[in-house]
Design a protein around this nucleic acid. Structure first.
Length: 938
RNA sequence: GCGGAUGUGGUGAAAUUGGUAGACACGCUAGACUUAGGAUCUAGUGCCGAGAGGUGUGCGGGUUCGAGUCCCUCCAUCCGCACCA
């Protein structure tokens, strides 16, 4: 073989690896484990573009590196294969989503295979396969059968709660719950089954309830908060409205505190941790009760500034607040109702956009200040959200800008309770002022006053210290077809779980994927969708009798259900007894390294942590965080090319002259452009309307295109698929090039310009083994000192770089190494074989080939030991000292490293080249760091 | 508005602990070779300058013998959150 025949080599090894199970991994307690995971891909119809594999390459490089270090590495891949796009496609074409999904997966698999990834495909999972979603349904049942005990700070079986209710009611229970009444054992035991179940729903971690949901009419489904961006759906940008619907929810709020504190132990970027903290939105403060004048009810408010209670000059309730109608006096009834109507008409989006417009309405009612006894006006205003806190605020205009604005607008009092602060122009929101005009809080700081006032509130039963979270319970129902069916049927309207042993409940066939005529979700179209409790199977809807055969749930689960636990299934993907065996999960434990985009910060990453903590609480797993370390790869952007058409003509002008004409830039397919030079013939053939195009070219006769960095998309003709590049340069080149582009975490434009350089590098590697005439060059000669130095320098750098995920500089090291070895004429087997092992994580195909050629057993390159670094080879006797004058590097002197600073100083002061700079002056100071630098200060 | 990240040649970038700014690669320039190729080799390539030299890491300050790196102020771009009481 005379030249580097990458296509043959890569084909050969792909086949070999697949046939010999090279990447299969089994549990092995004699080795330390390491779990490297890529974020679950959704197999879209468009296939992979070069941006997708970036993370997979990074994880594959790292997984192969860890394997060489002696770890037993779990590196699996699978598909998050339920989801909206397949269903939307089904609605349009009538094709079953299962078929399109399967086709897409095939395409993904082909593309992944050609990249040479070391995935253990025997562990592949698909969320849409019944073998998998059987266990998603099973976990749902466990959540349904659990409640959150705040005393033990963990989830417990619902049976323990029922037992407690039977014993002594709910008074001694501290649970995460929406149930706010007190009952005793007698009350509980006298309730009917339905009544008891309704109570329990308020405690279960998976529960059904009427909730205000984000309803997206265009998609025909509800959306979770994280599936919305700026009031419209994340997918498609459709409008979203608030709607009260009976929905399944997950009581993720129970875990709010643990989801925050758990972040401290994780090796994630600050950006992602902040996004999660922000989303959970913890705020510390107090609940305060305000008595309403001439009324038995109280208004409860949540405030983070209980210290400012003497600055309260009015109260504001959300227009939807349940007390509004009761307290409004007849004088104001009309105005209040009008305002409520107006507020209700506004969409969430309008309310957000309308921040500047202050609006509100006095109710005519007054509250009594709990300490001063003063009368305080009660207003309603839409700047107070019904869904946060208690839906009511105590307004302290001197300390809160929104309250201040409201007070100014309606001419309400602004009482100043901050010493030496001016609040005439705006509120003073800092927490560093000393209180004044605040009765027993006078002279105190925020810290001291808050503590004291909370103690007083609690002593007088007027309120209590309280921590509030912004995080909402997660809506778990979707009105879609292509998702996991719930293992739930309804008996007299009460949801009941189907027994575990009858799972999975298989997604039924339907005639069409749209909602039914009477607005039921698509599963309402199914003919066979009823549960027979005697036969324990799904039967025809015709048979529903209300005694033994009942209707099944028509909603399906959201996309995040399957992806919240998939990393566990990889540990034991074929298990049909359990979701994964305890033994295997105890071996693999949680993911050591998770690579994926940062766009899942508030969705998948939060839900997966929630489910992990839940499974941990219930003793199903032994760890309570799923992903120990995470790296968020940057997005690869497209580099679009443009041609410039002169207005109203078919004449195109080259980029450098485009300003001399009135032009319209047009996207041109990047496959027609090389190095900004346009293939003019190809362009004419590209689209019929360009067939008669003429060009105004550069002097050398080429047409230069302009360019811009944009997201990769079909419409911009800037999509680069890995397929073409693999065909042209090989997978090893593409793998190395994607890493070479820059730090994994950074977003960067895709540009194939540099790929030749990386390809040439691999050819140079080949040339170390084979001469141009095809003869084998490797010798048994003892390596030279220089070559050993080059090799060990590279081992050291490679280790350091891989350990800190500097995957781009690592490629540079290899290049420097090969450049040096080439220059040295090194063909020593002992050097080259170590180098091959070093390089193999990046370029596995060529390394396997050369490894075999070196005479080793076929296909064993990835089972080698990472070469040991020997510092002895790097020991130097001399060092090229940079000599700075006043901190500026001026010259270099080569001196033995044995010289001490005094000897160096003497030498340098008499050194002719240095004297030119010293110019007869006496140095004020000499800084001499042996082995580093000499600095002469004049 | 709040929080986070990023600003270095024509381009992608490197500089790990404060110690030679621009490694490595692309591109470009000049040359060699040649069965004209998207090949290979040699030399050069931050900017200004003929040169000596000057200057240079978003702007402006500071600490230091020495700052891309540490501190302060400001600017730009990107991302997240946003009437959250």
């Amino acid at each position: 073989m005379s030249d580097y025949q990458f296509a043959d080599i890569e084909n050969k090894w792909r086949t070999f690896w697949a046939e010999n199970g090279t990447n299969k991994v089994v549990e092995d307690t004699t080795k330390p484990k390491y779990y490297v995971l890529d974020m679950f891909p959704y197999p879209s119809g468009a296939g992979l573009h070069v941006g997708h594999p970036l993370g997979y390459i990074a994880s594959d490089v790292y997984a192969r590196y860890k394997k060489l270090l002696g770890y037993n590495v779990l590196h699996p891949m699978g598909y998050d294969s339920f989801g909206l796009p397949a269903e939307q496609y089904a609605i349009q074409t009538g094709q079953h989503p299962r078929l399109t999904t399967e086709n897409n997966i095939k395409r993904y698999r082909d593309q992944l295979d050609q990249m040479g990834f070391s995935f253990d495909w025997s562990r592949e999972v698909r969320t849409s396969s019944p073998e998998y979603y059987k266990w998603t349904q099973w976990i749902f049942i466990q959540l349904f059968e659990s409640w959150y005990n705040r005393k033990s700070q963990k989830a417990e079986p619902i049976a323990t709660l029922v037992a407690a209710f039977e014993q002594s009611g709910n008074e001694g229970i501290d649970a995460e719950s929406d149930f706010d009444q007190i009952f005793d054992a007698a009350d509980w035991n006298s309730m009917t089954y339905e009544e008891q179940e309704r109570v329990l729903q308020d405690y279960r971690l998976a529960y059904i309830a009427d909730s205000w949901v984000n309803w997206c009419p265009a998609l025909g489904t509800v959306l979770a908060n994280d599936e919305m961006v700026n009031g419209v759906s994340e997918r498609g940008g459709h409008p979203v409205e608030q709607k009260l619907m009976r929905q399944w929810s997950m009581r993720i709020k129970a875990y709010a505190e643990r989801l925050i504190t758990g972040l401290d132990q994780l090796d994630w970027s600050d950006a992602i941790k902040d996004i999660q903290r922000n989303w959970i939105g913890k705020s510390q403060g107090a609940m305060v009760k305000f008595q309403i004048e001439n009324h038995t009810d109280c208004i409860e408010v949540f405030t983070t500034r209980p210290d400012t209670i003497f600055g309260v000059s009015f109260m504001v309730l959300a227009p939807e607040h349940p007390l509004v109608n009761q307290i409004t006096t007849s004088t104001y009834q009309q105005e209040v109702e009008a305002y409520q109507k107006k507020a209700a008409l506004k969409t969430e989006r309008d309310r957000q956009a309308d921040v500047k417009n202050i609006s509100g309405q006095f109710t005519g009612a007054f509250a009594i200040h709990p300490f001063s006894g003063e009368k305080i006006q009660i207003w309603i205003g839409d700047y107070v959200l019904a869904s946060y806190g208690t839906g009511a605020v105590m307004a302290v205009p001197c300390g809160d800008q929104r309250d201040w604005d409201f007070a100014k607008h309606f001419n309400l009092a602004i009482k100043n309770i901050f010493q030496d602060q001016d609040v005439s122009e705006g509120a003073y929101a800092e927490k560093d002022a000393i209180l004044t005009d605040s009765d027993f809080l006078n002279g105190l700081s925020y810290q001291e006053a808050s503590k004291l006032i909370i103690a007083q509130l609690e002593a007088q039963n007027l309120g209590k210290g309280k921590i509030n979270y912004r995080l909402r319970d997660a809506i778990f129902s979707r009105q879609r077809y292509w998702g996991e069916p719930f293992p739930v049927y309804y008996q007299n309207g009460i949801p009941k779980m189907i027994d575990e042993q009858h799972l999975p409940i298989i997604l039924p066939e339907v005639e069409n994927y749209l909602p039914t005529a009477d607005g039921e979700p698509p599963l309402g179209n199914a003919q066979q969708w009823a549960w027979d409790t005697t036969q324990n199977k799904v039967v025809s809807n015709q048979e529903i009798n209300g005694t033994t055969i009942f209707p099944l749930e028509l909603n399906t689960m959201p996309g995040w259900a399957g992806s919240s636990w998939y990393f566990l299934r990889y540990m034991d993907a074929q298990n049909n007894q359990e979701f994964a065996s305890a033994e295997k999960m105890n071996y693999w434990k949680n993911v050591d390294l998770y690579i994926g985009g940062s766009e899942h910060g508030t969705g998948h990453l939060l839900y997966a942590r929630f489910w992990t903590k839940f499974l941990f609480d219930r003793n199903f797993i032994q760890f309570d965080e799923p992903f120990q370390k995470m790296i968020n790869q940057g997005m690869i952007l497209g580099r679009s090319s443009f041609v410039y058409r002169i207005k109203d003509t078919q004449q195109f002008v080259s980029a450098s002259m485009k300003n001399q004409y009135e032009t319209l830039p047009l996207h041109v397919d990047i496959s027609l452009v090389d190095n900004d030079k346009l293939d003019m013939d190809g362009f004419k053939k590209w689209r019929s309307d360009f067939a008669n195009a003429t060009f105004i070219c550069e002097e050398d006769g080429t047409y230069l295109c302009g360019h811009e960095v944009e997201k990769m998309s079909k419409s911009k003709f800037n999509v680069q698929t890995p397929d073409e590049l693999v065909a042209k340069f090989g997978a090893d080149t593409l793998r190395m090039y994607e890493m070479f582009l820059g730090p994994v975490e950074q977003s960067k434009p895709w540009d194939t310009k540099g790929i030749n350089g990386v390809h040439n590098f691999l050819r140079k590697v080949w040339r170390l083994f084979y001469a141009q005439d095809g003869s084998w060059r490797v010798t048994e000669d003892a390596p030279s000192k220089e070559s050993l130095k080059t090799l060990h320098k590279t081992i050291k750098k490679t280790t350091e770089d891989l350990d800190r995920f500097s995957l781009n500089t690592c490629v540079s090291n290899y290049m420097i190494c090969v450049n040096e070895l080439t220059e040295q004429g090194c063909h020593s087997k002992s050097i080259l074989q170590d180098f091959i092992v070093l390089l193999s994580p990046y370029a596995p195909h060529i390394c396997e080939e050369l490894w075999e050629k070196l005479g080793y057993e076929k296909g064993t390159a990835s089972f080698q030991k990472f070469p040991a670094f020997n510092p002895e080879y790097l020991v130097e006797s001399n060092y090229d000292y940079p000599v700075s004058i006043n901190g500026k590097m001026r010259l270099k002197v080569n001196l033995p490293l044995t010289m001490n600073p005094k000897e160096i100083e003497e030498f340098i002061l008499s050194y002719p080249d240095a004297q030119k700079w010293i110019d007869g002056q006496t140095p004020k100071k000499m800084i001499i760091v042996p082995g580093k630098i000499i600095n002469i200060v004049l």
